[in-house]
Design a protein around this nucleic acid. Structure first.
Lengths: 118, 118
DNA sequence: TCCTTAGTTCAAAAGTTATTGAACAATTGG
DNA sequence: CCAATTGTTCAATAACTTTTGAACTAAGGA
């Protein structure tokens, strides 16, 4: 965990909701949820936005406490902060993901995902 | 129901999330949820924002499909669209309201609420 | 070392949302 | 009819957010 992340109790509901209210970020979260446990790098999301713009949206998600970004080599491995979100806002993430379409209807994103043992 | 409302299937998740991502609107929704079944008029929310600004936020909530506003005399009776939201996004509203603090910690708003038989 | 890959930072531009006050409309009570 | 109450609309402004491209850093491989 290299980049600045809020602690679990610093995660704010309005900020999380506002951050998830953007379609690009919601798509990122859906995709992360569909591959839960598998850290993904930014390149997985390049069909959702440009590289620069992705950097912006991924920073928003991280700063809101929705995702965790770990620097590994030149990559960032991105995961959902499910445990923290579930503890803080029980049921919220699941209902958002289910409402967003669950597993079906995912954008054709991410062939060749990065798997990491931990 | 006088003012324009989206139909249940027109309610969009990102729009609902973005609308709930504003602290003033989230406070309005919390308050509506705490008085569920009791239509409230705008004056109940005057400690959250100015009259003009409330009109703006209440319009946002209505246009997003989160609330229903019925014109009765010179008042608007405002209710949560819980049934439509629950059908469309099961569990979402409840988890948001619970995360926002549930029944405790409500702003000191609305003495003398407007009750209506229906 | 040099090149490539992965992602960030910066500044500018564009777009959107929130807030304000003044003026307005509609209903209700006297 | 007149005044008060309730809420809307409008235009202006302020404040944010999103998007962009160019320049950058840092790590890894040849």
């Amino acid at each position: 965990m290299t980049l600045p992340h809020p602690t679990a109790d610093q995660i704010s509901l309005p900020i999380v909701l506002a951050v998830l209210g953007d379609p690009t970020r919601l798509a990122i979260v859906r995709y992360l949820a569909s591959k839960e446990g598998v850290p993904l790098n930014c390149s997985k999301f390049l069909d959702l936005a440009s590289k620069t713009n992705l950097s912006y949206h991924l920073a928003k998600l991280r700063e809101a406490g929705v995702t965790r970004s770990e620097a590994v080599g030149t990559s960032r491995l991105i995961t959902l902060r499910r445990d923290d979100l579930d503890r803080r806002f029980p049921g919220l993430l699941d209902s958002v993901i289910a409402a967003a379409g669950g597993d079906k209807d995912l954008p054709a994103v991410g062939t060749a995902e990065v798997e990491v043992s931990a």
